Computed example of a mutant assay.
Amino acid sequence: MKNPNGYGSVCKLSGKRRKPFAVTVTTGWNDEGKQRREYLGYYKSRREAMVALADYNNNPYDLSAGKLTFKEVYERLIKERFPKISKSNQLGYEMAFRRSEPLHDIKFNEVRKAHLQSVIDNCDKSWGTKKKIKVLFNQMYKHALENDLTHKDYARFVELPKNDTKNSRKPFTLDEINILWENIHRFDDIDSVLIMIYTGLRPGELVEVKNKSVQLDERYFRGGFKTEAGTNRVIPIHKKIHKLIENRMDPNNEYLITNFEGNKLSYYVYYHEKFKKIMQQLELNHRPHDCRHTFATLMDNADANKLSIKRIMGHAAKDITDKVYTHKDIKQLLMAIDRL
């Protein structure tokens, strides 16, 4: 049976081909009333080609989108998403994209479930990293469907392995904290570990603290990201680390934690070139996020005000309705931190 006018057609190409059936569709008409036609794709069987043609007619999309690569769709996604998400989430997207390098130059509409699954299966990182990669895939296909860049979501078929990882976060013991204090003048950057322990900062937040945000006289600074409650929050300065922070504040540097040249550190460099070396030198077995876990444990053991703990750590709470901190608020946070 002949297809309706403008519906498109399927034809078998000559010669020996892996996908001999070509589908063409009408994309418009010229000034003379003749159809402008464009290839939709090539298929192994006539049936597969007819299904593709029917799918296109049920949900037509811009065929020029079929020329976009995986990388180009990612670039379109982050242009739309990044202004709406935290710095932490942006870093997660960037990491997941790097892990998806085998897909970068493949046309997005030629990516299939097997391609996506292979990225997950061949990733030698943690389950959490694999989950972030799948989140990226989900967001890319959501963006593609919303903008008529594709007509099928292959990301929903991707499977994550079973999460066998156990929560390995463990707080520093009091003896270990004493070891840090005893060696503070022996090894560089031990002060940064203690600053995290006494502020609850995430390691990624630590390297983002700017000197101009620090109010030494009033014993607080602003910092943090990741969540709405955590972004640009007030963090009180415990008396024990007041001098450590003061010594760090070089007027020639923009950031509190810097490299030897006074420039900003990335989390990756801080972890591998500073934190890991400190742990090895002191024969301690901890990761940077253990400092934040230590802070939460110490505050809880000291019976600090629960709401103050949430505010300092940047956890959302029903009681927190805005980002305005009064002198009374800051005084309460200082009272809470001084219980350590």
Results as ranks from 00 to 15, higher is better:
S14A: 09
G15M: 05
G15W: 06
G15P: 06
K16E: 09
R17K: 15
R17P: 05
R18P: 00
R18Q: 11
F21E: 00
F21P: 03
F21M: 07
F21L: 05
T24R: 15
T24M: 11
V25P: 12
T26M: 14
T26W: 11
T26C: 15
T27Q: 12
G28S: 13
G28M: 13
W29N: 01
N30I: 00
N30L: 02
N30D: 15
N30V: 00
D31Y: 04
D31K: 09
D31H: 08
E32G: 00
E32W: 04
G33Y: 06
G33W: 07
R36H: 10
R36E: 12
R37H: 03
E38P: 05
L40W: 13
L40Y: 13
L40K: 15
G41S: 05
Y43T: 07
K44E: 14
S45D: 13
S45R: 14
S45G: 09
S45T: 15
R46A: 06
R46G: 00
R47Q: 11
E48N: 13
A49L: 12
A49G: 08
A49N: 08
A52P: 10
L53G: 05
A54Y: 06
D55Q: 14
D55R: 11
D55P: 04
Y56V: 05
N57S: 03
N58W: 01
P60T: 04
P60A: 05
Y61Q: 04
D62K: 13
D62G: 02
D62A: 09
D62P: 01
D62V: 09
L63K: 07
L63E: 04
S64H: 13
S64W: 04
A65H: 07
K67Q: 15
K67I: 00
K67F: 07
K67M: 10
F70D: 01
F70E: 02
F70L: 10
V73P: 02
Y74S: 02
R76V: 00
L77R: 06
K79A: 02
K79S: 01
E80Y: 10
E80Q: 04
R81Q: 11
R81T: 03
F82R: 04
F82S: 02
K84N: 08
K84R: 12
I85P: 06
S86P: 05
S86G: 04
S88V: 11
N89L: 12
Q90C: 05
L91I: 03
L91T: 04
G92I: 05
Y93L: 01
Y93V: 00
Y93I: 00
E94C: 07
E94A: 11
E94L: 14
M95S: 13
A96D: 01
F97Y: 14
R99W: 01
R99A: 03
E101F: 14
P102C: 04
P102V: 09
L103V: 06
L103H: 10
H104N: 12
H104S: 07
H104M: 07
D105T: 10
I106H: 07
K107F: 14
K107L: 15
K107Q: 15
F108M: 10
F108R: 15
E110N: 15
E110D: 13
V111S: 02
V111C: 14
H115G: 05
H115P: 08
L116Y: 09
L116A: 06
S118T: 13
S118M: 13
V119S: 09
V119F: 10
I120V: 08
D121S: 13
D121F: 04
